[in-house]
């Protein structure tokens, strides 16, 4: 009875929440926005150094957001590897001995690397960019890991920490260097905007992939003698 009551109350709260939110959305949709940001953006796109408006917003107009966002990712990576046990890297449980996976991975890994490169390159004028490329790169790393390919750089050592920090530090250096060159922070000199953004994108791709892969690897694995998930607790 108590359980039913709890569910009923929660359903009522969620319905009220949905109703209120839907009403607000409906009311907002009825009035036009007083500021036309897309128009303003289109006007300034030329000065941004890239042709794709989303990349321009991410890496130029609102680049401080992106800098902090990569910071969040690095924090997650740091907190993740602080949990890691070195032994979990060697855990044979993690390696699937699936021969199909092994065969597929010989095809997929090179293909995914090419795809990651393409996504990175496409980011300047169509959908794509550092994060998408980094995610694909990380996915190919996960695949290699599952296939049992040893990846020593994922040990929580100097190399891993350097990889985590690389993209973020380059971004940060550009931010400060642009200020030293005389303009404001994260204001790229117009002549260099394009190459700078390209460099940032490349190192970010690398670091994003590293962070995601490190987080995948540092999650401890279950041992066989432990209870199955769901049975415990």
């Amino acid at each position: 009875m108590m359980r039913f009551l709890g569910v009923a109350i929660m359903v009522a709260i969620c319905l009220a929440f949905a109703g209120g939110l839907a009403l607000t959305v409906w009311q907002i949709a009825g009035t036009p926005a007083p500021v036309n940001l897309p128009h303003l953006l289109a006007e300034n796109l030329d000065a941004s150094g890239v042709d794709h408006p989303i990349t321009a917003v991410l890496l130029n107009f609102r680049s401080y957001d992106t800098l902090l966002e990569i910071g969040v990712l690095v924090i997650a990576g740091i907190a993740g590897i602080s949990m890691a046990k070195t032994t979990s890297l060697e855990d044979p449980d993690l390696r699937t001995s699936d021969s199909l996976l092994y065969a597929l991975q010989r095809w997929f890994v090179p293909l995914m690397l090419v795809l990651a490169g393409y996504l990175l390159w496409a980011g300047s004028d169509r959908p794509g960019g550092a994060f998408q490329a980094g995610a694909v790169l990380a996915a190919s790393g996960v695949m290699m890991r599952l296939g049992g390919i040893p990846m020593d750089f994922l040990r929580p050592g100097m190399l891993l920490r350097f990889g985590l920090a690389l993209g973020f530090s380059v971004f940060l250096l550009v931010a400060v260097a642009s200020a030293l060159a005389g303009s404001a922070f994260l204001a790229y000199p117009e002549a260099f905007a394009k190459p700078l953004i390209l460099i940032i994108e490349v190192v970010l791709t690398f670091s994003i992939a590293m962070v995601l892969l490190a987080l995948f690897v540092s999650a401890p694995v279950n041992r066989t003698e432990e209870p199955e998930e769901g049975e415990a607790g």
């Binding site: 500021v35 940001l37 303003l40 953006l41 300034n44 130029n60 107009f61 609102r62 680049s63 401080y64 303009s183 404001a184 922070f185 994260l186 204001a187």
Partner: peptide
């Protein structure tokens, strides 16, 4: 930041 005026920056 970045020399861009709000709402753009």
């Amino acid at each position: 930041l970045g020399g861009w005026q709000a709402p753009l920056g």
